[in-house]
């Protein structure tokens, strides 16, 4: 999706050339005022002085970024060292989101491939089956997941009644629960772009490889995978980026014990800390990371399109 809007298709048709600026005006007005201006305002806030217990004082300072990157001890007067606290939180989020992405890929790729190789008439039905859960409110899906996984929940009841385990598996309030929650939340985002790529893949190439005595798994690795790489990358981005900023899964499934990026930022505005400039700075760091990632992705896409 992130790459989808950026192409815009062929520019040959120019029927409404004379009105084009008027036609674009409403979208510019809304998006500049409600998206771009707020992001710029957030950038400005990250350089302001914090007001005790929430709010800002209009005096420029680098304090928020200083707090993010440098550790000056519990009392703020030690010589500055690299601050590991927030790097740890960011790293944990990247790690959790990364594991969720890998898990989604392991399940999502075969699913997408399987669907794309069904007869054309049933394909849409399979896609339909995968997308329905995505339309269910994320909150409800996360809560359902928690209900299913809890110590006295249906999954443990079932496993105990079948005699597979004696004691309930403790999953809720662990990192595993967070990864499972993220994986579950965004799985369809992985399946759909890969499906779109595999559907366009020319299976004559696989047949050619088979004629040359390549085993099926070699064909998959050396021929199919490179051909559908853009879809795989798009899927990974679509799972990884929202997982990175998630706070429902850590909050509801992880027991709010460890901050993730999303909960760290939320805490600055709605929780105990009340440090707006720091929250804005953390959000800017997250935004910069995501934009760099998307730029790398866009370049990869362009390269893939250039070399068919």
């Amino acid at each position: 999706m992130a790459g989808g809007a950026a192409t815009g298709g062929s520019a040959a048709a120019d029927t409404y050339k004379s009105a084009r600026h008027w036609l674009l005006l409403p979208s510019w007005l809304v998006l500049v005022l409600v998206v771009l201006a707020p992001v710029c305002m957030m950038l400005i806030y990250s350089f302001l002085t914090k007001e005790f217990r929430g709010g800002v004082i209009w005096e420029p300072t680098l304090a928020a970024y200083d707090q993010f990157f440098f550790d000056r001890g519990l009392f703020g007067d030690d010589p500055p060292k690299i601050e590991w606290t927030y790097i740890t939180i960011f790293w944990r989020s990247i790690w959790q989101a990364g594991l969720a992405t890998i898990l989604s890929l392991i399940i999502g790729f075969p699913t997408a491939y399987f669907i794309a190789t069904r007869p054309e008439r049933t394909r849409a039905l399979w896609v339909f089956l995968v997308t329905i859960p995505y339309w269910v409110n994320l909150l409800i899906r996360t809560v359902s997941m928690k209900f299913l996984l809890r110590d006295q929940g249906p999954m443990n009841d079932f496993l105990i009644s079948t005699g597979l385990i004696d004691d309930p598996l403790r999953i809720v309030n662990t990192n595993l629960a967070v990864q499972l929650g993220l994986f579950y939340s965004y799985l369809p985002f992985m399946v759909l772009p890969i499906y779109a790529s595999v559907e366009r893949y020319n299976f004559a190439m696989s047949e050619a490889a088979a004629d040359l005595y390549a085993t099926k798994w070699t064909t998959l690795r050396r021929i199919v995978l490179p051909a559908v790489k853009p879809g795989v990358i798009a899927g990974c981005i679509l799972v990884f980026v929202p997982s990175l900023g998630a706070f429902l899964a850590p909050d509801l499934l992880g027991g709010a014990k460890n901050f993730m990026i999303g909960s760290l930022i939320e805490e600055q505005f709605k929780g105990n800390a009340g440090n707006w400039p720091f929250g804005a700075a953390a959000a800017m760091v997250l935004l910069t990371m995501v934009l760099i990632l998307l730029m790398i992705f866009a370049r990869q896409q362009r390269r893939a399109e250039a070399s068919p």
Partner: peptide, 11 residues
């Protein structure tokens, strides 16, 4: 679509 939701919310 590119800006993470939490960032958009804060902004």
């Amino acid at each position: 679509l590119m800006v993470p939701e939490i960032v958009l919310a804060v902004a």
